[in-house]
Design a protein around this nucleic acid. Structure first.
Length: 665
RNA sequence: GCUGCCGUAGCUCAGUGGUAGAGCACUCCCUUGGUAAGGGAGAGGUCGACAGUUCAAUCCUGUCCGGCAGCACCA
């Protein structure tokens, strides 16, 4: 409640706890100057009760105040935002007539979207950056004015800035229209900004150009977006650029080729050719998941291709057709021209299995799992290595249960997902998002209300269980048949990937007339829960490749060790070592080539073979091997039996180790 | 799908309006060498596909296919 008359004095609390009174409407700059001129010079913004605002803003009420220097981590956002404005001014100076739109700060920098008939190219960057440095060197103050809404629109209309006019219209009526000047150039902006363009400094760089739809809608015109980044210090920019290089080195498409895991070719856009080594990883992953499922789930396999009629019943033909592959007999004479569709999802197949034979309430929850290969016609621009393909394998399952079992099943799945991610070393932050009803959907509002209510309760429960779990709501992002949880994991270099999902479905069983006989002898439609842990095995392997940078833990490594000889004198012994290793269950290769050991070490190191077992005359005589581990410089001579036992232990999958420990305890 | 860029040997890339080169990888020969590249020779390409311009196209133009970066979409 504000008092009827504004007080003339306000009390500000400084970070050290000191409190001082100032006349109302004193600006941050005046306060800084009052403390010391050098402080005023160093200060680029202030925070009132923790919120960053312009240093020149008059302070109207009591607050905690912090004077923010350029070195404060919170300033980074301002540097980038200021830099975006300078970019826009530079572009409009160099190419008059270019329309400006928006220029926000993003995770690693900023961008600005422009409208211009001629798109920009990276060759323009030098000229733009040069102009930006001029503007920064001019060091004009950022000043803010609050304009009348109609006047603002008129000014932008007169300047030919149609997009800005639209932006003004989008600002809620009760919000002020703020205009920031930097010299003569000005932009509509929420702020805040630093005190002048000179504070931006020189540690910025334009990164790339790309197209982007106006307001993120593919029905709107496409703008040209220029991405840039900026830091407080040059060293930080250099570090960032180096990080990008490192990330490129672990790109799964590059490592997939270098490590000979898989390939793509023109005839099969978005479908993977798995090579022996890549397929070994794939199989290890599937074996792992099978072990994790064995106690609760029954594995099934449903057909790859089914009559269109079935997809009409399921609703896919209506709601998902543009993503589906359809097929007919290719023979001209065939009179039977039925349309079939490749399955884009496994659920309808599993419902058929559930429906086969009468089910009793005693059989619920019935959990059917399938490593199901599905095909989806993804937009051409969406394809990205293993991360986004048109044919992929889901570690899919459908749980048929009663409504009262639903919440428990969701929590059980949650446990499985979290423990699986932990086994692969994804120990960073995890986000669980609840996606609610989309516009395009089947089922009644009552069904959706009910489903979303149950899910929201489960989400709360999940949240309360883990400290590194964040939760969020994605309104309108659900599947067309029901709301879903999406599990987003964070990899070794901080990137987020959506993998697991739990989707509640009150529609499909009913559509197919699936039911079970309840305790009272009546027919009831089961609730169906769709769920995947890895999501797509292809994508998950892509994530693993980048997460491990190709250095797989021994249990997943396609080739776990290579036995290499120094001279051909060691051949017989090397064969015995390799045979013993294989006998012990290790995936090993023998390298008897007439090459120098240096050459072999280099080659197998580049191939990221985890263990190199080198044998020469000495080892043969002492029944030992010289073990060189990937990533270490030296080597260690050990008795062969001991070396193999250690490798076998290390190669034991984490879940198997856990099971053994539990059995032993 | 949209905007921009790209497509030459398995990979990384040179190059030219008169039908092609390098390094690595591959094959063979010499070398038997203790922990990140020993030497030599050879083989390998209708220069993404199809049209057009031209006496002549890998090179210029167009269409298509595929890829890359974003956007949109999504496991």
């Amino acid at each position: 409640m504000k008092p009827a008359t504004q007080p003339l004095k306000i009390t500000l609390t400084f970070p050290d706890g000191a409190q001082r009174e100032f006349p109302r409407d004193t600006t941050g700059l005046e306060i800084a100057k009052g403390i010391s001129p050098s402080l005023a010079k160093r200060t680029v913004a202030m925070a009132l009760d923790g919120a960053l605002v312009d240093l020149n803003d008059p302070i109207t009420e009591d607050a905690r105040i912090e004077l923010i220097s350029r070195e404060d981590p919170r300033t980074l956002e301002l540097i980038r935002h200021d830099c975006a404005h300078v970019l826009a001014e530079a572009v409009q100076t160099l190419w008059p007539g270019t329309q400006v739109t928006i220029g926000p700060v993003i995770e690693n920098g900023f961008y600005y979207d422009f409208f211009r008939n001629e798109p920009f190219t990276p060759e323009d960057f030098d000229a733009i950056e040069k102009k930006m440095r001029e503007i920064i060197a001019r060091d004009r103050p950022f000043t803010k004015e609050v304009w009348d809404r109609e006047k603002t629109k008129q000014v932008f209309r007169d300047k030919g800035e149609a997009f800005k006019v639209e932006l003004v219209d989008a600002i809620p009526g009760d919000e002020p229209i703020k205009i920031y000047f930097q010299g003569d150039w000005f932009d509509l902006c929420r702020g805040p900004h630093m005190t002048s363009t000179g504070k931006i400094g020189g540690a910025f760089k334009l990164m790339k150009v790309a197209g982007a739809y106006w307001r993120g809608d593919s029905n709107n015109p496409m703008l040209t977006r220029i991405y840039g980044t900026a830091f407080a210090k040059q060293e930080e920019l250099d570090t960032y650029l180096k990080q990008i290089e490192e990330a490129e080195k672990r790109d799964h498409r590059r490592l997939g080729r270098e490590l000979d895991l898989f390939h793509f070719q023109e005839e099969g856009p978005g479908v993977v050719f798995w090579h022996p080594k890549g397929w070994t990883i794939f199989q290890q992953l599937i074996s792992y998941m099978r072990r994790r499922l064995s106690s609760d789930y029954s594995e099934v396999n449903a057909p790859q291709i089914l009559d269109k009629a079935l997809w009409e019943t399921s609703g896919h033909w209506d709601w998902y057709r543009e993503n589906m592959f359809a097929a007919q007999s290719a023979g001209d004479e065939a009179e039977d021209k039925r349309w079939f569709a490749l399955k884009p999802m496994n659920c309808p197949g599993h419902v058929q299995i559930f429906k086969h034979g009468l089910k009793s309430y005693r059989e619920l929850p019935l959990r059917l799992a399938e490593f199901g290969v599905v095909h989806r016609y993804e937009p051409s621009g969406a394809m990205h290595g293993l991360m986004r393909v048109r044919g992929f394998t889901q570690d899919d399952a459908h749980i048929f249960c009663t409504e009262s079992q639903l919440a428990d099943e969701c929590l059980k799945i949650n446990e499985l997902i979290l423990s699986t991610y932990a086994d692969f070393g994804f120990t960073g932050d995890l986000t669980v998002k609840l996606s609610t009803r989309p516009d395009k959907r089947v089922g009644t509002d009552e069904m959706w209300d009910h489903a979303e209510r149950v899910m929201a309760t489960v989400l709360q429960e999940i949240q309360s269980q883990g400290s590194n779990i964040k939760t969020a709501i994605n309104p309108g992002e659900g599947a067309f048949y029901g709301p879903k949880f999406e599990y987003v994991l964070r990899d070794a270099i901080g990137r987020d990937w959506q993998c697991g999902t739990t989707q509640v479905d009150f529609n499909l069983p009913e559509r197919f007339g699936a039911f079970y006989i309840d305790q009272d002898g009546s027919k009831k439609a089961p609730v169906m829960v769709h769920r995947a842990i890895c999501g797509s095995m292809e994508r998950f392997i892509g994530i693993l490749i980048e997460h491990y940078a190709g250095n797989f833990p021994l249990w997943l490594a396609p080739m776990q060790a290579v036995v290499a000889t120094i001279t051909s004198e060691g051949d017989e012994y090397a064969k015995r070592v390799a045979a013993a290793a294989r006998q012990a269950g290790l995936r090993v290769e023998l390298d008897l080539r007439n090459e120098k050991i240096n050459y072999k070490v280099r080659e197998h190191s580049l191939a990221k073979i985890p263990a190199l077992l080198v044998v020469g005359k000495k080892e043969a005589e002492t029944h030992s091997v010289s073990v060189r581990r990937l990533g270490s410089d030296g080597q260690k001579v050990m008795p062969t039996t001991e070396a193999l036992a250690a490798l076998v232990d290390e190669a034991t999958p984490p879940d198997v180790k856990r099971a053994r420990a539990a059995a032993g305890a």
